[in-house]
């Protein structure tokens, strides 16, 4: 046993805490909850869940392949398709033009495993019998995926450095573009996580997530607006335009983020996470 105590178990927390001296063997975790207050316990449980989910991405080489693919595709779209060099302008407009569509494909790849994997392996029974609420689990999984998407966005900052090396861009605009991209990715991720909760098959989760992402993005495109205006009353077409991610991302990528955009991202993410909770509860009961 000393082997385990000495080599295996994490000693980082050894000196942490006023409770270290109390009767550790006899007291249960239930009394720990009563002693430390609910909010601290809630937050620590959430962080433990986020940590597990986040490190699960790196358990296989897939995470690194994903990050490399994301960075490479972003570069290809910017330089080749977006004609970065030919434009002769020092900004990242071509990058931000294609980024939402790149995210529409890659975000479902991040979200597809979140719930489908738990259901396929049966570990959802372990997770949902821990003393945590469904909200906590949903939020933790989303946060872990969102952090991972943040890393993916960071992996493209080589483009940002390049454009600074080539000229003198407005870095404030570019920074706002990244913020807008991360917030938009959060919405797509919440929708993808909901799709993942609907099935135990990760491929189906991916396809559903990608479909939702394309719907959320394309609701604002002229093509869809044209089709919609022919079919639907103008008011409905307008409200669909209002829930489109593109409507809020495009101005933000040009350096203008309004309060309405922020409220939109927050409320859309909250809406999909709420749906996610409902789907998890519903699938559990069936």
């Amino acid at each position: 046993m000393s082997r385990v105590a000495g080599s295996g178990i994490d000693n980082r927390e050894a000196g942490n805490g006023h409770e270290a001296g109390s009767d550790a063997a006899a007291s249960t975790a239930a009394t720990a909850i009563a002693a430390t207050g609910m909010s601290g316990v809630w937050l620590r449980a959430l962080m433990a869940l986020v940590r597990r989910e986040f490190s699960a991405y790196f358990a296989t080489p897939i995470a690194w392949v994903f990050l490399a693919a994301f960075a490479a595709l972003a570069a290809v779209f910017t330089f080749r398709v977006g004609n970065f060099m030919g434009r002769g302008v020092a900004d990242l407009a071509p990058f931000f033009m294609y980024l939402p569509w790149l995210l529409a494909v890659l975000t479902p790849a991040v979200s597809m495993r979140l719930w489908a994997e738990e259901r396929a392996s049966g570990s959802i029974e372990l997770l949902m019998t821990l003393p945590i609420s469904t909200w906590q689990a949903v939020l933790a999984k989303w946060l872990a995926g969102w952090l991972f998407l943040g890393l993916a966005l960071l992996s493209t900052t080589g483009l940002w450095l390049s454009v600074n090396w080539l000229g003198t861009p407005d870095n404030g605009v570019i920074a706002l573009g990244y913020v807008a991209a991360w917030m938009s990715a959060g919405v797509l991720l919440a929708a993808g996580a909901t799709a993942s909760a609907l099935t135990r098959n990760q491929v189906i989760a991916f396809v559903l997530g990608a479909l939702l992402a394309f719907l959320l993005l394309s609701a604002g495109t002229p093509l869809v607006r044209g089709v919609l205006s022919a079919w639907l009353p103008a008011a409905v077409a307008e409200s669909l335009l209002a829930i489109s991610l593109t409507t809020h991302f495009a101005p933000a990528a040009q350096g203008v983020i309004s309060l309405a955009d922020v409220l939109y991202w927050l409320s859309m993410t909250a809406f999909w996470l709420f749906l996610n909770v409902l789907v998890v509860e519903w699938k559990k009961a069936a």
């Binding site: 000693n11 927390e13 620590r44 003393p131």
Partner: peptide, 21 residues
């Protein structure tokens, strides 16, 4: 992970881990 989600930490978490091991 299981111990942390159940509210164990610090010395209590370590002794719980040693105990089950």
């Amino acid at each position: 992970f299981c111990g942390r989600v159940r509210g164990l930490r610090g010395a209590r978490l370590r002794s719980a881990l040693e105990g089950v091991a």
